[in-house]
């Protein structure tokens, strides 16, 4: 199963895009815990893409690629920005950063998804979730 979406860079558009993905996940009967993780990580990725990548320019789109292959969900989020170095994001769990107002999005993505990759430029994030269980469709009687 594959789906591609494009989202104009307005935070209000995030909900609709995520809802489309959630509908597909429900169709696959994804575990509630995995659903929560995927929803959160997708939203965090979209917020960053809109806010920092495309700088709220509504003429610039964020592209989402969703694929379910075997028991893995692959989601890529790409903005039109110049990219960023995810290794330079401060660790929000350090004592001196706990009271930070923001900066936990990338950290949550790295901890809730099983695989996280950025392209070289830093404007495309790919996240993979290994699902706990996908309920198989009942086999037809022969």
């Amino acid at each position: 199963m594959n789906k591609q979406l494009s989202v104009a860079s307005d935070l209000k558009n995030i909900r609709h895009a995520v809802d489309e993905i959630i509908i597909m996940l429900k169709g696959l009967q994804v575990d509630e815990s995995d659903m929560f993780d995927i929803r959160l990580c997708l939203e965090e990725a979209l917020i960053n893409a809109i806010k920092y990548g495309n700088r709220f320019d509504k003429d610039l789109e964020v592209l989402i690629d969703f694929a379910c292959v075997n028991d893995k969900i692959n989601i890529s989020v790409e903005d039109k920005g110049t990219g960023f170095d995810h290794n330079k994001v401060p660790d929000p769990t350090k004592e001196e950063n706990l009271l930070m107002g923001s900066g936990r999005g990338v950290f949550l993505i790295k901890h809730l998804m099983d695989e996280v990759r950025f392209n070289k430029k830093g404007n495309r994030l790919t996240m993979v979730k290994h699902l706990k269980k996908i309920k198989e469709k009942p086999k037809r009687d022969q």
Binding site: F36, R39, L40, E43, E44, I47, L98, L99, M100, G101, S102, G103, R104, G105, L108
Partner: peptide, 15 residues
């Protein structure tokens, strides 16, 4: 459901 901005707002409230 809470996202990172929700966590940030709760931190602001605490501060």
């Amino acid at each position: 459901y809470v996202d990172s901005s929700g966590l940030a707002t709760l931190v602001e409230m605490l501060k």
